[in-house]
Design a protein around this nucleic acid. Structure first.
Lengths: 303, 303
DNA sequence: TTTCCTTACGCCTATCGTAAGCATA
DNA sequence: TATGCTTACGATAGGCGTAAGGAAA
């Protein structure tokens, strides 16, 4: 098989149509250039150039081969540049794990930020439950997970992505709906749609903690795992609940959201990204760096 | 810059993920393979493989580069195969010159036959007058010309492509139109739309010869160069004329065609292709060979 | 006779293979 | 301790440059 150096020789001769000038361009003398062209022709299996002492011209096969040869050199160039861009994190792939619950708002937002910051990085999205995400991270099957705290594995690193406060959600027409904001006390003894302690552990703990610290004991009528299910049950009049402020973006009909009057701002709903500490994906490193920069510049304190 | 041999080394290692096995596949020993991979990484400017004593794996840049590398090897293969196909005439280009008059029927027919015989050969069509075609042939600007005889240049070779008889053409409603066929004698003294001796020399000579040999002297009322113009003038009642039988495919309204009763079959209308004898376009050679084979197999004597 | 591609030949660089080194599980 | 990638080093092959050869205008 031929070599790229021979391709460069051939392109030079084909462009100059003169072995002497081509050799000068290649910083070599004519004889070895002639030899390389002969070797190339032998490898291709057909003459590429017609030469007499007065004229050098391409054969039809040479004309076609010239086109392919230029493409080959271009491809070789871009292969190098592409690899460097991947090594520097400007291009490449990031595999992102996410839960079904984050697919409505958080994943699109993260994807949009990635695309804006690193337009040449390909995102591979994989939906899986939180535990599977952490395992996939450790196994290197994904680079980044979108999960709620806490993350206890020492090989993994959690970084905050979004903090938001809780709101009370209640059915339209509920007596409390007339109040501009709702005190936690008002929840004492009312029917309450609660998060599942198994499948929505984070929200169960968060809401339980808030209610316990306020000394409030609502009546838990249901245990559900998805915020959408909470909205549906609240709308159906089965009770009130607490949901993250971002839930309002769904414009869910039949329910109203109200601020909580006396919610302490030190335990908001948190969502973060988790990465493996020794992940060596340059695109991921760059994304984390860009996100941190961007976040430091734009994000004020959120509650 | 790197060489294709290094690319082959890299692909082997990337596929085996084991230097020893890759070296065996490449019929070499590990140490020089390691060295070639190092040289390649240096040329690319970034590590492509992560290796410890226990594991070899691709870096993100290596993964991207592997994709490009495979493409390079594929392109190199196809470049060789393509060049060979061009050299053998199975692919390539044929530049064809043709006159405006042949563009209606003869060019499409020739193009269709070329495409059927040599589907991977690209046809470049260039409309020009006959004299320009012959000059372009000699200069190598076109490979094949579609012209009527004679071609006198010794460097050029004429080959018959189509032979067809002449028909009389007369306006609808003309007294002769009731006859099933027309004797040449009947043309004596009638108004006759004649071909231009300058711009339609071939037809002028052909028709003049036929009329002279029959001892018939029609009255030449017009001298035109294009057959379409003849049809228009005949239709307008300016006279009769003689045209090639193929003219009937135009389904021209207002004129009728009649066989000539006593036309000798030895001087039909001829159309041929002309090529330069020392043309070295393999696709052209193959086309001529295929055409000859096909013609010998299918074409009976035409008049 | 001149131009310029090719062949011939000696030198040298670069690659290969063998052997030793060294890190990891 | 064994596996397996890397470094070291001597041998060899292939490419380069100089010099001579040969065909066409």
């Amino acid at each position: 098989m031929f070599e790229l150096s021979q391709i460069r020789c051939f392109v030079a001769v084909a462009e100059e149509l003169h072995f002497g000038k081509a050799a000068a361009r290649l910083n070599m003398t004519q004889p070895p250039l002639s030899r390389q062209i002969q070797l190339l022709e032998h490898a291709v299996g057909t003459p590429l150039l017609f030469r007499s002492t007065r004229v050098v011209e391409l054969t039809p096969a040479g004309r076609r081969f010239l086109h392919e040869a230029r493409g080959l050199l271009r491809s070789a160039e871009t292969a190098v540049l592409d690899a460097r861009r991947v090594a520097q994190g400007h291009a490449g792939e990031i595999a992102i794990g996410f839960t079904a619950g984050s697919s409505y708002r958080d994943v699109p937002e993260l994807v949009a930020r990635c695309r804006a910051l690193l337009p040449d990085v390909n995102l591979k999205l994989r939906e899986m439950v939180s535990q599977a995400q952490l395992e996939a991270l450790l196994a290197g099957r994904i680079d980044l997970a979108l999960v709620r705290p806490p993350v206890v594995q020492p090989a993994l690193q959690w970084r905050p992505l979004r903090r938001e406060r809780l709101l009370a959600v209640l059915p339209q027409g509920h007596p409390y709906a007339e109040r501009p904001c709702i005190a936690l006390d008002a929840l004492d003894g009312v029917d309450f749609v609660m998060y599942s302690p198994d499948e929505a552990r984070y929200f169960y703990d968060l809401v339980s903690d808030i209610l316990r610290r306020a000394g409030v004991r609502p009546r838990h009528v249901q245990y559900v795992s998805q915020i959408h299910t909470i909205l549906a049950l609240v709308r159906a009049g089965l009770g009130l609940s607490l949901v993250p402020a971002g839930t309002t973006v769904f414009h869910y009909e039949g329910v109203v959201f109200r601020e909580l009057a006396d919610l302490r701002p030190d335990n908001p709903v948190e969502l973060g990204i988790v990465v493996k500490r020794d992940n060596d994906n340059p695109a991921l490193s760059r994304l984390l760096g860009e996100l941190a920069l961007h976040q430091a510049a734009t994000a004020g304190p959120q509650a």
